[in-house]
Design a binder for these strands. Structure first.
Lengths: 131, 131
DNA sequence: CTGTATCCGGAATGATACTG
DNA sequence: CAGTATCATTCCGGATACAG
């Protein structure tokens, strides 16, 4: 086996490389709030405070920050209506839907495997935590 | 299977809920190093330092920590051979392969969309950074 | 309602040294 | 080679106040 068989892809943007911008985008998507935000929006357009309630535990600051990052990357579209009081709707772009779909697939997989995960944890903790 | 499987309220382990253990596992999987580690291992079994080189930028400490978390959750199997010098191989469990597959789908999606993402960023920065 | 600005404590991370 | 231990630092994230 050759020593340079590590390539799963010959893409220009390789997340495994430290300085690659795709790593940054991946972190926006999979980060603590990014993933949950995309997941929430995959159900449909939501307003700021609706999102805040939907994503349990997120603060105004972090939600705002997350939304900006996702909007900047072209995954979320921000629709502001100049009414009073202001009304702002957030929705996924086509690209956002694509990404969110794959993310949800992952989330469902993890949720569905939790029984197994929890069992594994118990085994692990029993074997190591005993000391 | 219902067409709206992402409806979290139907599941016992709901990532959208703050205190749910699935959120914790999801963070191990999608966290800064967890995702890249799973991605690297999806190509096959790797040793500690091979992983370290593959996942560009990870420190010994973080890789060790990440591997422990993934092993605890039952996603990675650690195979230690009592030789000298020591040799330890890490590989995905069946569950790990399932999760890693979905994760790679997401990663490939993001990598493939980077041109679009970068273009969106330029537009965003031009419109906002100009101020 | 929809955010932004600021402060601050603690967790996450990295560098380094060290052990088996 | 395969880690662990320790320490310094960074930076994430929550609370709060405030603005449009």
């Amino acid at each position: 086996m050759t020593a340079h068989a590590q390539e799963p892809d010959e893409l220009a943007y390789n997340v495994f490389a430290k300085a690659c911008p795709s790593r940054c985008t991946l972190e926006n998507v999979t980060g603590r709030w990014g993933g949950l935000t995309l997941g929430a929006l995959s159900e449909g357009s939501l307003r700021f405070n609706e999102l805040r309630r939907r994503v349990d535990g997120v603060s105004e600051k972090m939600l705002s920050q997350t939304l900006h990052a996702l909007e900047r990357d072209g995954l979320v579209h921000r629709e502001a209506q100049p009414t009073n009081p202001p009304r702002v709707d957030y929705e996924l772009t086509p690209l956002g839907r694509e990404v969110a779909g794959r993310l949800l697939s992952l989330i469902e997989c993890v949720e569905g495997a939790m029984d197994e995960v929890l069992a594994s944890r118990e085994r692990y903790d029993e074997a190591r935590g005993a000391r």
